[in-house]
């Protein structure tokens, strides 16, 4: 039985290796227990909305930050972002786009949809780890959530 109540970071990432590396980076800094990983947009929305697989989850417990990949099968990152920012109850959840794309149009559209940050995943693992750790630190420790 998974304990969803302590989830503070929702990681939406279709690449298992990227997900593993992200969680590894966070684990080094003791955030691991608070991370939940879903593989696509549908699961992400199910988790936040407490439906389907996540029906028993307490809807009042919102993640402190969503790390969201853009390019995913079925419902992609921009769709998830649109859903979250278009929902009155969820709008307050900080969403950080974490993607390989540094195409201008992705950046622009993400901010138009209301993302809180846009991070291009570095190819270099060390830079990547550093970026993830900084993100975690900022959104979980520094940032004051509503």
């Amino acid at each position: 039985m998974t304990d969803y109540e302590h989830v503070e970071v929702l990681l939406v990432e279709d690449s298992p290796h990227d997900a593993e590396m992200t969680m590894h980076a966070l684990s080094d800094n003791k955030f691991l227990s608070k991370v939940h990983w879903v593989k696509d947009g549908v699961q992400a929305l199910d988790f936040i909305g407490c439906v389907g697989e996540y029906a028993q989850r307490d809807p009042s417990q919102l993640p402190k930050v969503v790390l969201l990949d853009l390019k995913m099968p079925k419902v992609d990152g921009l769709d998830v972002l649109r859903e979250i920012k278009g929902n009155e109850r969820w709008r307050g959840i900080p969403v950080v786009i974490m993607t390989s794309s540094n195409e201008d149009r992705d950046v622009i559209e993400s901010y138009q949809l209301g993302t809180n940050a846009y991070v291009v995943k570095p190819v270099d693992f060390l830079s990547f780890t550093e970026a993830v750790v900084r993100l975690g630190m900022f959104w979980l420790l520094v940032n004051k959530a509503p």
């Binding site: 290796h17 590396m21 390019k71 540094n102 190819v123 780890t129």
Partner: peptide, 16 residues
């Protein structure tokens, strides 16, 4: 941009 980078990141990451 998306798909070519991810494997490289994995190669680099796992080797590290």
């Amino acid at each position: 941009s998306h798909d070519l980078r991810a494997p490289i990141r994995a190669i680099d990451g796992y080797s590290r």
